[in-house]
Simulated assay, not measured.
Amino acid sequence: MSGSASELARRLGEHAETVCREYLSNGYRSGNHWIVGDVRNTRGRSMHVRLRANAKGPAGKWVDEQSGEHGDLLDVIEASCGLTEFRDVADEARRFLALPRPETVRTEREAAATRGSPDAARRLFAMSQPIAGTLADRYLAGRGILLGPQERCLRFHPGCYYRDLLTGETLALPALIAAVTGLDGQITGLQRTWLDPSGTGKAPLADPRRSLGHLLGNGIWLGLDPSAPVPVMAAGEGFETMASLRTVMPALPVAAATSANHLAGLSFPPGCRRLYIAADADAAGRHGIERLSQRAGEAGILALALRPQLGDFNDDLRHLGPASVAACLRDQLIPDDARLFLPLG
C-alpha cells in the first residue's frame, strides 16, 4: 500500500522548506536545516528540521535537542495547528499538498463516538473478542509470545477497518487489539495491529500498526493491578518487545508506551522503586530512554537499562529462544529481582 501516513510524510518532505515556512513561521533556514524553538512554532533554536535528504536520513525529519522529541512533518502540522485527531492532520496535509480529500464514510457505530477519541477506543475494544484460539493468538505464538488468559488488555477483531490515509480506501481486516490504559486500568486508547488473513503475520500494509486515543502518560500494561503497589516494573517502546519480556518473566509487570516519545512521558505506578527500561537500537528509542530515566531519577526511582542481544527482545525470543533471553536478563537484573522473576535459572 502506498497511501499511508509514511507516504504523506514523504510527500511533505519533498516540500520541506515550504512546509516549514507555512507551519513553523517563527523559524529560519540555516544550511540544510530549518531552526525553530519547538514543534509548536515557538521562537528559539532547539528544534532542527532536515530540509533535504542526506546520509543522515530523509527530508522532513526533525529533532528537538532540548526535549528529545522527534518526528516528521505530519507531527509538525499536528502540533503547530493544535490538532488532536489524526484524520484532521491528514486532511490538513492533503490541503497543503493540494490532494483531493477522500469521501468520508461513517458507520452508525463510528457516528456514536468521535473518531480517535477514548470513547471510540473503548467502543472498538468492547466490539472485539478474547484472543484465545483466534488469528491474533496464533500471530503472537508465531512471534514466540505466550501470555496467560489474565492479560485482559488484548482482544481480537475479525474485521477492523483500515483506512488508507492518502486515498481514503477502507479495508476490513483481522486485527490484534491492545488496550492503552491509565494506571487506574481505564482504557484511554488502543493499538491496532492488522493481520494477514492467511495467518502468515502482519497484513501487507505500509503501516499495519496504528494507535488511537489518549496515549501520553499511558501504556499497554501487562500484569498491572491498579489496586496494588508496583515496586518493580519494566517499560519499553514496543508491545511485542514488552510482551516478550513478560513471556520470559511472567511475574514482572510491564508497560509498552507505543512510541519513543510516549515512552519518555510514561506515568509511574504508586510505590515504584525500580524501573527496567528495554533498550532499542535506534536513536529515537535512545531519546525516549534518556528522558524516562531522567524523570525516574527525579521521582526517586532507580532506572536500569535492559539490552537485547539482537535488535530487540522479540528478535532474541524468536531467534535465540527463551532460555537464552532468560540468561541474558539474569546478568542485567539486580540479584534479588533475578531470583524473584527468573526463579528457575
Rank of each mutant, 00 (worst) to 15 (best):
F125H: 07
L166W: 09
L183T: 13
R152F: 00
Q186T: 14
R210V: 12
P204C: 04
R109S: 11
L212G: 04
T188Y: 08
G182T: 07
S117M: 14
G199W: 14
I220S: 01
D196G: 09
A136E: 08
D164M: 11
S117W: 05
V180P: 01
P229Y: 07
R163P: 02
L205A: 10
T188S: 15
L166K: 04
R123E: 13
D225L: 00
D225V: 06
V232W: 03
L224D: 02
Y161E: 13
R152N: 10
A172E: 15
E237Q: 12
G148Q: 12
C153D: 02
G213L: 01
P197G: 15
L190V: 08
R209P: 03
L171V: 02
V180H: 06
Y139S: 02
T181A: 13
G148M: 13
E151T: 11
P174C: 11
L190M: 08
P197Y: 09
L176S: 05
L154P: 00
A120N: 06
V232G: 01
M127S: 13
R163I: 12
I177N: 00
S128K: 04
M233P: 05
L190R: 01
D196A: 15
C160V: 10
R155G: 00
G116T: 07
P204A: 15
A111T: 12
T134G: 12
S117C: 12
A126Q: 13
V230G: 05
A172Y: 06
Y139K: 05
W221D: 01
V230S: 07
